[in-house]
Structures are given as C-alpha cells and as structure tokens.
Amino acid sequence: MKMLAEMFSIGPGNKDHHPALRCAVGVFVPLLTLVLLGRLDLAIFASFGAFTGIYGRGEPHGTRFALQLRAGLLMLAVILLATLAARAAAALELDGTGTAWLLVPATTLVAGACSLIISWWRMRPAGSLFHIFAFAAIASIPNQPPLWQAMLVAVLTTVFCLLVGFSSRILPSRRTPWIRPRPVRRTPNERRAAWLEGLGYLIAAGLAGTLATWAGQLLGFGHNYWAMVAAVVPLVGHTTRHRIRRGVQRIIGTVLGLVILAGIVLLDLEPWQTVLVMALCQFGAEMFIIRQYLLAQLFVTPLALISTLLVVPSPPAILLRDRIIETVIGAAVGIAVVLAPEVWRGVRERTTAEVQRVRRPTRVPRR
C-alpha cells in the first residue's frame, strides 16, 4: 500500500513553471519557423536540439549555461552519428529488418557511452534516455534530408535554447551571478558507480532492443527503440523501490497518454496547431517530471508520438499499438535489470549461510 500511495503522490512545486516555460519556448519557436518555411521534414532535428534546454533547470545562469552547452554539444554529436548511421544503412541497401537489427547494437553503444558521460559530468537529468531516443529515432528515418540542413537546424535550435536559458538575466529580479562551475572531482567510488551505471544501460537497452526486434518480427510491430527508451527509465533512482515505481509509472502513464493522443489525432489539427500542442506538452512534461513521473507521462507520450508523425506520417492506430507494446517490453526488462543484483545478492547470502552451516563442526555431547 505504501508503494501504491507513493506512485500517485505528487511532490511540492519549486517554481517549476520557469524551466517549463523556457523548454516550451525552445521547442515552439524553432518548430513554428519550420512550419512557416514548409520544412517539417527537419522538425525532428529541431525537437532533439531543443533538449538542450532541459538541463541545468534550477542552476544559476553561469552554471546553467555551462551545463546546457555541454548537453547541447553532446546531443549534436548524437544527432550527427544518427544521420551518418542512417546513411550507412542506406549504402548497405539493408531492408527494414536489417536496419532494425543494425539499430540495436548501435543504439546500445550510444546508451552506455552517453550514460557514462552524463554521469561523469554530474548532469541532471541523469542517464542517456534522451540520447537513445534521439539516435534511434533519427537513424530510423528512411529518407534523410541533406546533412548540412539537418545539422544547421539542430545547431541553430541548440544556440537558441542557450540564449533562452540565460535570457532572464535582463530582469534584475531574476539575475544571478555569472560564475563558472567548479571542476568536478570524482572519488573512486563515484568513478566506479559511473562505470556500473553505464554497464546497466548497455544491458537494459541491448536486451530490450533485441527482445522488441525479435517479437516485432514475429507479431508484426515496429519502433523497437521505444522499448530501449522504456528499459532505461527504471535505472534512474536512488533505491530499488523508486526504480521499480518509475517503471510501473512509465507503463500506466503511457496508456493514459495514448488516450490523450487519440483525442488529439481526432481533432485533425493544422501543422501550426500541432506545434502549439507540442509546446504545451513540453511545458506540462517539465512541470511534473520531477514531482510526479506518472503525470508527466501524460504529456511525454503525446509529445513523442506527435513529433514522429510530423516527420514520418503513419496510421495513428499502428503507432498507438506499437507504443504500448514496446513500452511494456522495455519497462519489464528495465525492472528485471534493477532486480537482478538484489536477487543475486540474496542468493549469494543464502548460499554462504548454507555453506557455513554445513562446515560448522558438530559438537559431541559429553557423557
């Protein structure tokens, strides 16, 4: 009952509307610009470039700029690798199945490497969820736009989000000292934890991607990277209880978010209206992502799928089906990865206790 109550409880607010508004503007302006230019084929590059704005949300301006600059450069590197991977798959003339299987190890490597980098830099949000999503989604696009156009949009969006990040300095009441963050000194335990976390992301993403691709071929569904994204969600947290709760919240929130998405699709919105809905979803996601993860998924799910529909139009019913199946597979794998060390420690402790009991000398009773 305690875990159930925690799952639906909501934490106190801490001026969450400030970072939420920055993130919403960082998404809305670049996407609206692309709508006006008639280049929605580049929308996905702007969407992932805008992830720069989610870092350093509560930090002073100087620290926030440094964190967002690092985050932006890392995301640009991931976007570039994704476009190159898509072109490599096209050059090899792989079919859909071959591309899906190639995507799994490539995305797995991105998951582990970016997790290690984010942990090394002590950035929040932790983990490589956004980088997994960005790499796999872009690499899955069959018809890639010119490379220079894609990267130009991503770079300009990143620069715009950096400007938005310290724009409040023009207000004296909101201005904070421009102080560079101190160099991070990591203890041996922190370095070991970073490597272990990266290993966890490798295992969870790789296993989820493999299972989702295999099951998708048998049952006829796609978007295997959604399972990889869902698999790493439970890996973020300080306790096993918290991590399992996040995995369950991901499933429940996705189901409810799909209901909202179905209503949005029925409205048959114009492109500029769709972009406005995406900005509102981004605002809602940032408002609740720290306070109530399940509630945040009501906004995250429509946001992710609408961005997919903008670039690669697909029947909404198929996207809804794929999203829930892939999320269940991924979240189940993530929870299993979280529980595996606990189960292993329990087995070792019982085995050790049993060996010690057997080896304990038997006392001969005195007559």
Rank of each mutant, 00 (worst) to 15 (best):
7 M>I: 02
17 H>Y: 13
19 P>V: 14
21 L>D: 11
22 R>C: 09
29 V>L: 15
33 T>G: 05
34 L>Y: 01
36 L>H: 01
37 L>G: 12
37 L>Q: 13
38 G>H: 12
38 G>L: 03
39 R>Q: 15
39 R>H: 15
41 D>C: 11
45 F>R: 07
47 S>F: 14
50 A>C: 08
55 Y>P: 01
55 Y>Q: 00
62 G>P: 06
67 L>T: 07
69 L>D: 05
76 L>P: 04
79 I>K: 12
84 L>D: 09
89 A>K: 00
93 E>H: 11
95 D>W: 09
99 T>W: 00
108 T>A: 05
110 V>S: 10
111 A>I: 09
113 A>D: 10
116 L>W: 15
118 I>A: 11
118 I>S: 10
118 I>F: 09
121 W>I: 03
121 W>P: 02
124 R>T: 13
126 A>F: 02
126 A>N: 07
129 L>F: 15
132 I>T: 08
133 F>H: 06
142 P>F: 13
149 Q>C: 00
149 Q>S: 11
155 V>H: 08
156 L>W: 07
158 T>R: 00
162 L>Q: 06
172 P>V: 05
173 S>Q: 04
180 R>F: 15
181 P>Q: 11
183 P>K: 04
185 R>G: 01
186 R>Y: 03
187 T>L: 10
203 I>E: 09
206 G>C: 05
208 A>E: 14
208 A>K: 00
211 L>R: 03
214 W>H: 07
218 L>N: 05
219 L>I: 07
222 G>F: 00
223 H>Q: 12
233 V>Y: 13
234 P>K: 03
234 P>V: 12
237 G>K: 01
240 T>H: 08
242 H>R: 00
244 I>G: 14
247 G>S: 10
248 V>G: 02
249 Q>L: 05
253 G>Y: 02
254 T>Q: 05
265 V>W: 01
267 L>V: 02
273 Q>A: 13
273 Q>F: 03
275 V>E: 08
276 L>I: 05
277 V>W: 03
281 C>W: 03
284 G>H: 13
287 M>D: 13
291 R>V: 12
293 Y>H: 05
294 L>G: 13
295 L>C: 05
301 T>N: 02
303 L>K: 02
311 V>F: 01
314 S>Q: 15
320 L>G: 05
324 I>K: 00
325 I>W: 10
326 E>T: 11
328 V>T: 09
335 I>C: 06
337 V>L: 01
344 W>A: 12
344 W>K: 07
345 R>A: 13
347 V>T: 13
347 V>K: 10
348 R>K: 11
349 E>W: 08
352 T>S: 07
357 R>I: 04
358 V>Q: 14
358 V>M: 08
